[in-house]
Design a protein around this nucleic acid. Structure first.
Lengths: 329, 329
DNA sequence: TTGTATGCGTTATCAT
DNA sequence: ATGATAACGCATACAA
């Protein structure tokens, strides 16, 4: 292309079309120019296969149409779907997505934030596990699921409400003795509210509940031990279990079935997230579905909003119960 | 930051440190300068929280350390894992990933390729469904799973070998009447070779086989009809089935069990991809595992290689059988 | 309406 | 070794 094999520039186009540089710029940006000029420029563009250099443009305009997205990985279906939804939302607004996988590592998160800043992105959307993430205040940042303080807007599902719905649904389905299970960080993030909503609903319904909460890194067998402790004569103490994620719920279902406990006949189980087989088939389990598209769209809108400073500091979006085979219908 | 609220530049740092612009540049790029100068610059950088503007740098150096990755979506576990592996491989080589989801749409693919070119990426890695994708020849492109001709390197699993392994494994496990099932594009992409390897092995083993291949868009029920046609007195004609993907295999297993056919007792099933529950738990089914990390690393190495022109036009990487509960062990 | 000139933040080539 | 200066490709204010 161009003269020498490197990409053609506006100058090449201008020479080819026999017009001035500024005219080419105008045509490329849809600014009206004389009809004949426009045609000649467009022909030259087509002939040379010219592409605007967005680096030069970005340097000049201080706008890159690029947003950095930080998630732990793309292997967990939840993160993958989240990234997918964010990507779609950005794409609709003519923005591109720079994706960083942090692997839950606070140091990497910090490093990627710095990289994103160098990259002069128009904003950063992150699902962070670094409680003391430092970010320059000249780049907009929206957090998902983690409240960083009033200065940084946080978008999350209504985790508290989801916990309530789970308890209420189990109650409605006849359960009278519930359990909540969770493995997770001690960081104060929004998903922790799932438990609070759950216990609050149990208390309102006046039914007993048991909590089994273990720290990150605890082997899964801790849950199996817990289940076994509550198993007497092949019957479980509980008739309903709320698990903090679908992933955990799925494992619990397997363990219970292996122990001879029937799901949902003997015990009903509800997970959280709304994960589906292969992304598009059935739900793994009955679940509280997170509105990922809505979360993504909200994040993107907030990031691209100029007035981020006076955005709400926490946005909670409504969740929904969905049947997935591990509850009575 | 800086003076006015906008990000500080090298000029600001130079003024703050009382040195010349060029000196700051050298420090930022690790080029040796006098010890005292270096310290002063570093202090100024820290004080101002200065970040190199990669757009200015990219404009000057014509190197962006950014690679565009095009996949259909991040919802399918296979694509998500692939993107994850590519991201990791790029990250290790100090490159960033610009992710585009094409939704299988040839027009969008073309559009994103153009966008990537504008973005002056150092290369493009794509898993394309557009047989006539046009790409300027001044930007390196590596294709996954689709052979575009000798000029564009293609990286893929050894799909043919995988098909063979599936047939041989089923035979080894006692199967003597096999079936292959597939839903998929008629485009000539590498995964089509799964069938060829399978049939070739069947013929070598001298065992009969049946093919059920339907076009994209065909409802899944076509497979259930097919199964029912081959069901006599609760027994299936086949004792082994090779499915083109884990996703299909999973559905087939469900259908069969619903029909009262036992898996793996009555019929053994092998899928393809190596997909796991929630990305990190068990395999969905017995499967031919694709070496995603290796595919990703190969793509990245080739893209960052200067001598892409004399790269091999097709690289096939070895696959492996893995037990996942739908075969006899 | 079209053309010209300046500067965005950086690197690199010069003299010094 | 350090400091001044010219590009990189583009947008834009200004002059024609």
């Amino acid at each position: 292309m161009g003269e020498s094999g490197s990409a053609p520039t506006m100058k090449d186009v201008a020479r080819e079309a026999g017009v001035a540089l500024g005219t080419v710029s105008k045509v490329m940006n849809g600014i009206p120019v004389g009809e004949s000029y426009r045609v000649r420029v467009e022909e030259a563009v087509a002939k040379l296969n010219y592409r605007v250099n967005s680096y030069a443009k970005g340097l000049k305009t201080n706008k890159t149409y690029t947003v950095a997205v930080l998630v732990p990985n793309l292997v967990s279906p939840f993160f993958a779907r989240l990234a997918n939804s964010i990507n779609r939302a950005l794409s609709q607004k003519k923005h591109r997505m720079l994706l960083f996988a942090t692997d839950y590592d606070p140091d990497q998160e910090q490093e990627y934030v710095i990289l994103a800043e160098q990259q002069k992105v128009d904003g950063i959307i992150c699902l962070s596990y670094n409680p003391e993430l430092k970010v320059s205040d000249n780049v907009p940042l929206v957090s998902i699921d983690r409240y960083f303080g009033a200065k940084i807007p946080c978008v999350a599902s209504d985790n508290y409400g989801g916990g309530r719905i789970a308890a209420e649904k189990l109650y409605e389905n006849g359960c009278r003795n519930l359990a909540f299970m969770r493995i997770g960080s001690k960081l104060t993030n929004e998903p922790n509210k799932r438990k609070d909503g759950f216990t609050s609903a149990c208390e309102a319904l006046d039914i007993p509940y048991t909590l089994k909460i273990v720290d990150d890194g605890t082997p899964y067998s801790a849950f199996e031990d817990f289940l076994r402790e509550h198993l007497r004569d092949g019957k479980l103490d509980f008739d309903g279990i709320f698990c903090v994620t679908d992933s955990l719920a799925y494992q619990i279902v397997r363990s219970l079935r292996a122990m001879g406990v029937r799901v949902p006949e003997d015990v009903q189980i509800i997970g959280f997230d709304g994960t589906k087989y292969f992304g598009d088939q059935d739900y793994f389990c009955s679940t509280i579905v997170q509105p990922l598209d809505q979360i993504a769209e909200t994040c993107v809108e907030m990031i691209l909003e100029k007035a981020l400073s006076k955005a709400p500091s926490l946005v909670c979006l409504p969740v929904q119960y969905a049947y997935g085979g591990t509850t009575r219908q």
